[in-house]
């Protein structure tokens, strides 16, 4: 066999082996999206109950001078929690989150606010470590199947920084950068401010349900009894809210990570197929060239023999 042909055959074998791997990863990712998506959906009833409780507590606190509700005013330091992935091979998933948070840091700098960076996910950590940038705190190891305990840890850490006065290195604002899972083909990076909370008159998320007699009656919150005092209930509600928001962002990011990986692996598989196809063509060409050469050698040889025999 000619050297050329052997080289092509070997490359085809290697590309096919890679294709098998990317194909397997694609299938695994697509089966995990379903599970991750179900976890996102499962948080909805809790989210409704929590937002309702917060709006009840906030609307009964006439003063609203709670530290977690204080207005940002002139912030000096901000914290950003960046949620990236632990593993790569997910296309632009982690890079686009990192890009957004870098833009946020830049915007903050323009208005004279320093930004502390908190990172979840190995890819984000690697980015900042490589550039020798300081991170306040990092979490790695469970980006594709987050646990609530992790979200609580993050919330506690951020809250600690938030409740420290900015003169002592505390922060005045907390931002969250994560990937919002809209559906299997559509995920967008979202930057949201977690704290201070923006208190609007009716902060019940998802309250834009169709107008009925019943919903109208419910929209007007009756006078509630609090146990213990409204202030204390709000005190314990808000950290809880922070942990829950982070938890939800973690789940959304996990689902998005799987979707991004599925897409990346699908295009890798497709590219491998294309490559195998074009390599096969070239291998065939090389084989044909070899055969043609052999025939012409035989014919040439026979010609020479017959002319010599004369």
């Amino acid at each position: 066999m000619g050297a050329q042909l052997r080289v092509y055959r070997r490359r085809i074998r290697s590309v096919n082996a890679t294709k098998k791997i990317t194909r397997a990863m694609e299938l695994i990712a697509s089966s995990r999206i379903v599970k991750a998506q179900a976890r996102v959906v499962a948080t909805e009833p809790y989210a409704r109950a929590l937002y309702r409780a917060i709006s009840i507590a906030a609307s009964n606190n006439s003063s609203l001078d709670h530290p977690l509700l204080r207005s940002a005013g002139d912030a000096k330091r901000a914290a950003v929690l960046l949620i990236s992935a632990d593993r790569g091979l997910a296309g632009a998933f982690s890079p686009s989150v990192i890009k957004q948070s870098e833009q946020l840091v830049e915007r903050n700098q323009e208005r004279g606010v320093e930004t502390d960076i908190y990172v979840s996910g190995r890819k984000g950590v690697a980015y900042y470590t490589f550039r020798d940038r300081q991170m306040m705190k990092t979490w790695t190891g469970s980006s594709d199947a987050p646990e609530y305990v992790r979200a609580e840890e993050m919330a506690n850490e951020l809250l600690k920084a938030y409740l420290t006065p900015s003169e002592e290195g505390g922060v005045d604002e907390i931002y969250l950068v994560f990937t919002h899972f809209i559906n299997r083909v559509n995920q967008v990076v979202e930057v949201s401010r977690l704290l201070p909370l923006e208190v609007v008159d009716n902060p019940v998320k998802g309250a834009n349900v169709e107008y009925t007699e019943d919903s109208a009656r419910k929209a007007v919150l009756p006078l509630y009894e609090f146990e213990p005092e409204p202030q204390q209930v709000l005190d314990s509600l808000l950290p809880h809210y922070l942990a829950f928001e982070i938890w939800e962002a973690l789940l959304q990011s996990a689902a998005s990570e799987h979707a991004a990986r599925q897409r990346a692996m699908k295009s890798a598989t497709d590219n491998a197929s294309d490559l195998v196809k074009s390599l096969t063509r070239r291998a065939n060409q090389a084989r044909q060239a070899e055969i043609t050469q052999e025939i012409s050698e035989i014919v040439g040889g026979a010609d020479a023999l017959s002319s010599a025999g004369k």
Binding site: A53, I56, A57, P222, L223, Y224, E225, F226, E227, P228, Q232, V233, S236, L237
Partner: peptide, 13 residues
Amino acid sequence: LGILAGHVPMLSS
């Protein structure tokens, strides 16, 4: 705390 039908609206930790 026990809650029966007709309890007043309440929010509690």
